[in-house]
């Protein structure tokens, strides 16, 4: 892939929620370019619109205005199933509350994104074991999420995010529920994921966490703030 074209281009993105008769403008025209292999932090206070922006970036939600070019392609007119496939192949997600399925093992949780594709199960399992070993959980394959600490659960979620070898990793307050020592470990892992050549987009309210990124985009009241 050439470095000339950004992997993600947001042009004047708007998002308005309709709450009863009230129009709530959450994003008022956000334009950001993100290059292949960048580590970007989207920082903002709560209510700044950073989570909404991340949902739009991750194709979990559609903007109400503006253009979103993903690898140069406008995603506005893509059908739902195509968006599903793009989420599956192109993106990895890490959430503040981990979102692991409680009644299956760590290994099965990691394999989950692969189950919606054609990769054979044996290969998926091998890949999941490899990833769990990479995040330091080689001895926890068959533990349920409830049997793991918060930091361990977030590592499982990170392994899951990497299963389909995505180009872009989206992390939404990944350390929001973790103590500082565990947070540092998770951030170190994110940096090593970035070191593998992946694009990492980190959403956070915390300046210290945002410092791990190469570039910081500050959001305020639904707009990108210039420094």
């Amino acid at each position: 892939m050439s470095g000339s074209q950004p992997i993600i281009q947001l042009q004047n993105i708007e998002k308005t929620f309709l709450l009863g008769d009230l129009n709530i403008e959450v994003l008022k025209g956000v334009s950001i370019d993100i290059d292949q292999g960048e580590f970007v932090a989207l920082r903002g206070a709560s209510g700044s619109g950073k989570s909404t922006l991340m949902h739009i970036l991750g194709l979990l939600d559609r903007p109400t205005g503006g253009r979103y070019l993903l690898q140069g392609e406008d995603v506005a007119n893509l059908p739902d199933d195509r968006l599903s496939a793009l989420r599956n192949q192109l993106f990895g997600f890490i959430f503040q509350t981990f979102y692991l399925i409680p009644y299956i093992s760590a290994l099965e949780n990691v394999m989950l994104p692969g189950l919606y594709g054609a990769t054979p199960a044996r290969q998926l399992k091998h890949r999941a074991e490899e990833l769990l070993t990479q995040v330091g959980l080689a001895d926890r394959f068959h533990f349920r999420p409830g049997q793991l600490s918060g930091g361990q659960q977030q590592r499982v979620a990170m392994a899951r995010a990497l299963l389909n070898d995505p180009q872009v990793l989206l992390a939404d307050e990944p350390t929001g529920q973790l103590d500082s020592a565990t947070s540092a470990e998770i951030m170190a892992l994110l940096q090593s994921i970035h070191g593998q050549g992946r694009t990492v987009i980190l959403v956070t309210h915390d300046a210290a966490t945002a410092d791990f990124a190469e570039r910081e985009v500050l959001l305020h009241d639904g707009l990108v703030q210039d420094r």
């Binding site: 199933d81 496939a85 989420r87 899951r160």
Partner: peptide, 16 residues
């Protein structure tokens, strides 16, 4: 809901 949402986020098509 969250389990379903998660699966969708991870790329599960609606029919699945």
């Amino acid at each position: 809901r969250s389990e379903i949402g998660l699966k969708m986020a991870l790329g599960a098509p609606r029919w699945a």
